[in-house]
């Protein structure tokens, strides 16, 4: 019997430390904001680089929920985030004009690139014209993976197809695969299928499972990818931590925040280019 008790006690004791720390994160919650952002900013490691700097300076911890732009804006609409930091300007402006956001600020940009297999069956490599490249993919009916998730990248992709005068989603060719998932999943799928895919450069640079894929088209002005930040309107959702959220927005577009963003590099390559307006209040 004594032996039994001892084993029981040992098992319980082994489990206790796991529970001991549970209250700790909750205690730190008072100076915390939730930011709904995109997979590209999180997966590329940008937040891992800039958030510690911000927290050290202001004592505000930032919890990032990484989703597609469409989902991130929806999260904010429901009042589940204090700040949105996304990359689909038209959707962002709609969000502000509906009254869910206070004001939208440009923060930074990078660019989209068209990725494809090294074999390049549609022969787009070297083209600087993104829409011409898409037309060739359409003509060749070469496999193309679409995010299909209303994300910023998906929105940009649909805009490019439209500018090319095509609508592959409606035409229903089986070479056009809409997967309804994040950037990473889309790249994994493209890698497995040797398909073309539109990706943001930051996610591509930090992506490790490239297989045969490489950047085939870049540099077109229409591949410009602008990120914006918006404080959620506390008049819509009174619990929004407007002061702390505003501090984050202010910091992102401040010279210091901008410099921190510019300082993030992978293999010596800069991933995001700050472009917040000079004048700020």
């Amino acid at each position: 019997m004594i032996h039994r008790r001892r084993v029981l006690a040992a098992l319980l004791a082994a489990m206790l430390p796991a529970f001991a720390g549970l209250a700790a994160p909750a205690a730190a919650q008072n100076k915390t904001i939730t930011v709904a952002s995109t997979t590209s900013t999180e997966d590329s490691g940008l937040f891992g680089h800039i958030l510690p700097v911000f927290e050290k300076e202001t004592g505000i911890a930032v919890k990032v929920v990484a989703q597609g732009t469409g989902q991130a804006l929806e999260t904010a609409r429901r009042g589940d985030a204090d700040v949105v930091f996304v990359h689909a300007k038209a959707q962002e402006e709609a969000f502000v004009s509906e009254g869910f956001g206070i004001e939208r600020f440009d923060v930074m940009y990078n660019d989209f690139v068209i990725i494809g297999p090294a074999g390049d069956p549609a022969g787009i490599a070297g083209t600087a014209d993104a829409t011409a490249a898409l037309k060739r993919i359409d003509e060749a009916e070469a496999p193309f993976v679409s995010r299909g998730d209303k994300s910023g990248t998906h929105t940009a992709e649909l805009r490019l197809w439209k500018e090319a005068g095509l609508d592959p989603a409606a035409e229903g060719g089986d070479w056009y695969r809409s997967i309804g998932q994040g950037m990473g999943a889309a790249l994994n799928t493209a890698s497995a299928m040797n398909a073309y895919v539109l990706a943001d450069r930051a996610t591509w640079l930090s992506f490790k499972n490239r297989g045969d894929l490489k950047v085939l088209v870049e540099g077109d002005k229409r591949l410009f990818n602008q990120y914006g930040v918006i404080l959620v309107n506390p008049q819509k959702h009174p619990h929004v931590k407007a002061d702390l959220g505003q501090s984050f927005v202010d910091w992102l577009i401040s010279p210091e925040g901008q410099a921190t963003i510019a300082g993030y590099r992978i293999d010596g390559q800069q991933l995001f280019f700050p472009n917040a307006p000079e004048k700020r209040t």
Partner: peptide, 20 residues
Amino acid sequence: NIDGFTRTMTTAIALETSKG
């Protein structure tokens, strides 16, 4: 899947998979 707050083993696995 908030880093350092609500990231569990399974969501971390999903994240690393999406990062390739």
